[in-house]
Design a protein around this nucleic acid. Structure first.
Lengths: 201, 201
DNA sequence: GGATACTGAAAGCAAGTGCTTGCATGATAG
DNA sequence: CTATCATGCAAGCACTTGCTTTCAGTATCC
């Protein structure tokens, strides 16, 4: 792809994530791309098309990165399989936390981008739920554990640990990742079959 | 308080929650308040002061409403005490979901309002953690259960169930509240002392 | 060398923005 | 009745924003 187009897309994505649709002016985007504003309009019909393309590309890449490290099709060990996956997702999520917050706020104003905006979250949710259902089928989950509810809990933990630490860091002493791991501990402990239950301390 | 001031504050809060700081123009706010734009500047020095006052008032009210229904000082029954409290908070949170999303996005641009914006969340977090620590002291929690981690999990569930259903409703079939209750089930079950453990189904 | 394609610089335009000024009007208090 | 006060209305100002037009420079391909 054209190098100028590339730089424009990257700049558009950065500024949109920081400032939202309204704040991402064509002048700012062109400046960060090191390009004349006129050139911007020679490559994209208008501002909406540019930002749309930038969002689409960014989220397509995110989905691809996630798909490159899927959970196993046949669950064997929740601790060894689910935890590293969640760690990976949290890291990706935290990295794009600023953009996620912007997307949340602009939701109603960007109906054309809904599919792209939710793509990564949808993918993670579906992947975890599929895995947990398979695990339940293999007897790796405590009978009575609800895979859908557990999925929602884990996604909720991902969500809040990806967004909140930037805003209330004093509540995440020891780091967001450590706090997240402790939350995963609680969930994994809740769904482990009784015979395996931890009784430390 | 002056009726005009009142209407201006209400209008400012509504439009700020829908459109953010940049989108909340003084003309829009004045129009929704049914007031001339000049009158707006006769009541508030500038746009920032108006929106700041609107946010401050809204969140102070939220904190007061939460403080009116606290968790008991001495925990006796997690199921009977914690669950209704969480239900209440979720309802309040969902009602202001639109505003929360805007606040998340505008975070970096509104440093003057940080304290007010995080107030309600901080209050809920502190209240739950206090309660759970007391519960742990009374032997109502399974030994080894980490009150801080459980608090984070519950707040995460509140957070995601307050925000996400508006954006991916098909993932919350049966309603956000039902999904939330199932998440609370998982958490409560995780921290219950072993002797009380559910073994239904 | 000439045609083509991409770019930058300068200027501008129509709409919208925060905010101000000047003046007229109606209600309220003394 | 008069003085005060809050408000509405019209106009405007300086600035930003999305987007356009015109012209000139430069690299590439044949």
């Amino acid at each position: 792809m054209d190098a100028t187009t590339e730089r424009l897309l990257a700049a558009a994505r950065e500024i949109f994530e920081e400032e939202g649709f309204r704040g991402a002016t064509t002048r700012k985007i062109a400046a960060r791309a090191g390009v004349n504003e006129v050139t911007l309009f020679r490559h994209f019909a208008n501002k909406e098309e540019l930002i749309g393309a930038a969002i689409e590309r960014g989220h397509r890449e995110a989905v691809e990165r996630l798909a490159a490290h899927p959970l196993p099709a046949a669950p064997r060990d929740l601790e060894a399989e689910l935890r590293p996956y969640l760690r990976l997702v949290l890291r990706a999520f935290s990295a794009s936390g600023r953009g996620v917050r912007t997307a949340l706020a602009e939701w109603e104003h960007l109906p054309a981008f809904h599919a792209w905006l939710m793509g990564p979250s949808e993918a993670v949710l579906a992947e975890i739920e599929r895995y947990l259902r398979a695990a339940a089928g293999s007897g790796l989950l405590r009978p009575g554990a609800d895979p859908a509810a557990v999925t929602h809990l884990l996604v909720a933990a991902l969500f809040s640990h990806g967004l909140l630490p930037a805003m209330m860091p004093e509540r995440f002493e020891g780091g967001a990742e450590a706090s997240f791991e402790r939350c995963v501990d609680v969930v994994l402990d809740a769904i482990r079959p009784d015979r395996d239950r931890r009784s430390d301390q």
